[in-house]
Design a protein around this nucleic acid. Structure first.
Length: 481
DNA sequence: TGAAATGTTGGGGCG
DNA sequence: ACGCCCCAACATTTC
């Protein structure tokens, strides 16, 4: 028997912070010197109409499994429950006689009201901690006291303030309660995708959980960080950190990543600076969502609610399934389906293609990404789509239309990315890989490509689509006009 | 974190 | 030697 046995426990409610290291809520509970009961509650109604997508649910399943194992290694447990957050928490407090609840704060539009309601309903205090961001997205303000609208001033403010606090080590010991409440099984969460092939494809790329995150971070530090400023343009694996899903689920804290990078980059070079600025895009998106609750659905420029989006289910489906006839677009969309992830450069290319070449609503693209990305995050996803359409201040101007051929040739010059995800084009020579419709008949024949049969003819002509997009967007003008 | 059209410059071929 | 044209390379502007 330890001193803590029999005392009222604290609940540590895990949400978007599925880790033991640098976890402010967990550490606060341990410092209270009470027994700790770690809890995860699956509430499918919590995200309003943004229920966790299928790829992200796969990730969550694996991450919860990893967190359970990590807690059991410290002789603790993870209590799983399915149901409404407030109901389950009230029940758990009642069952366990908990003295308080500690959790990481969320910044989604619905989170505040929900947490306030929970706090009001609970007979014990709900303590919220910052576990998912480097800076506090609520308190950051311009000199005028207004929220930031542009990325650059936001970055200046981040870098002018105190550097993020260094991460804290994981607890060596998590005091256990005398008795554990009952737990659902992970299987009962029904997080596995209906497509039986998806888990194998995802598992080939990803290792969800804190250990997987730590390995991914270490690999990135060793191999790519120093040249990140130029190397991230490479579309094949190895140029980027691929930490986004680990950060999304909080398997590693942003402070851990930030400080690891700053320490590992032996010389403070452009690689480190570029990487930290990417992390600040993530913070900026959270800041934006914090102050624009309708960011996921509603254009930041209200005039765009009247934009004449086309409605063409066939074109939308061709885009989703990666058969637009533009190899770089199709490669990206197929990487999304197979790996639950896409290189950021390609996200911009395919997004531009949807909203410019096809004139289809960005909300449809955002929804598809939401369903298919393992790193699907409401803030980053929404902000990025708005950025591509040209809706935020400082975002892409309306006349910026990516040419998928030039982008492919510039960033996938050796064709390895397209060949990996569009294997039916693999035997085309580099000169025609990104423009198969221009290949002479004998070149196509030698590569076993039959346009319109083994690979689609482009669903739109680039030049015509570009003109159409410029005509459609011009009346809506510049983003900051 | 564009692309395409248009403008400018300078070298080389050629009559 | 000269003017002319072509065109690549680069810069500027326009969408």
């Amino acid at each position: 028997m330890t001193a803590s046995d029999g005392a009222a426990p604290d609940l540590v409610w895990f949400r978007h912070d599925l880790r033991l290291s640098d976890h402010a809520a967990l550490l606060a509970a341990i410092r209270s010197r009470r027994p700790v009961i770690p809890v995860y509650i699956l509430d499918d109604s919590a995200g309003d109409n943004w229920r966790t997508g299928c790829a992200a649910r796969w990730w969550l399943h694996r991450s919860l499994s990893a967190l359970t194992a990590a807690l059991e290694a410290t002789r603790s447990r993870l209590i799983l429950r399915r149901g409404a957050w407030d109901d389950i928490l009230s029940a758990l407090v009642r069952e366990t006689g908990a003295a308080s609840v500690h959790a990481g704060r969320l910044y989604e539009p619905w989170a505040d009201a929900k947490d306030r309601a929970i706090a009001a309903a609970l007979p014990v205090p709900l303590h919220l901690h910052r576990t998912t961001t480097l800076f506090d997205p609520s308190s950051m303000r311009t000199r005028l006291g207004t929220p930031f609208t542009g990325y650059t001033p936001f970055v200046r403010a981040c870098l002018a303030g105190d550097t993020p606090a260094p991460p804290e080590a994981p607890p060596k010991h998590i005091p256990a309660p005398a008795t554990w409440p009952r737990s659902d099984t992970l299987t009962a969460f029904e997080l596995q995708p209906s497509d039986p092939d998806l888990p194998r494809a995802l598992a080939a790329v990803w290792t969800p959980g804190e250990d997987g995150a730590r390995r991914r971070l270490a690999t990135f530090m060793d191999s790519a960080l120093d040249h990140y400023d130029t190397g991230r343009a490479r579309l094949g694996a190895g140029g980027t950190s691929m930490l986004s899903p680990h950060l999304r689920w909080g398997e590693v804290s942003p402070a851990t990543v930030w400080h690891a990078a700053a320490t590992a980059a032996g010389h403070r070079g452009p690689g480190l600076e570029a990487f930290q600025k990417e992390m600040l895009w993530r913070e900026f998106a959270i800041h934006l969502l914090r102050h624009h609750p309708d960011l996921p659905d509603t254009p930041l420029r209200s005039t765009f609610t009247r934009f004449p989006w086309r409605h063409d289910p066939d074109d939308l489906r061709a885009w989703q399934e990666g058969r637009t006839g533009y190899p770089i677009v199709d490669a990206g969309m197929r990487q999304l389906r197979r790996a639950g992830w896409m290189h950021n450069r390609v996200r911009m290319i395919v997004a531009s293609f949807l909203v410019k070449h096809l004139l289809l609503p960005w909300q449809d693209g955002a929804r598809w990404f939401w369903e298919r990305l393992v790193d699907a995050d409401l803030a980053s996803n929404s902000a990025s789509w708005q950025w591509v359409v040209g809706l935020g201040s400082g975002s892409a101007p309306y006349f910026r239309v990516f040419n998928p051929v030039l982008q492919g040739e510039r960033f996938d010059a050796d064709g390895s990315y397209v060949r990996q995800y569009v294997p039916e084009l693999a035997r085309l020579p580099d000169a025609f890989l990104h423009r198969p419709w221009e290949a002479p008949a004998d070149v196509l024949k030698n590569a076993d490509v039959i346009l319109g049969e083994t690979y689609p003819v482009p669903i739109v002509n680039h030049t015509a689509a570009r003109v159409r997009a410029l005509d459609a967007y011009a009346p809506f003008g510049r983003p900051d006009a």
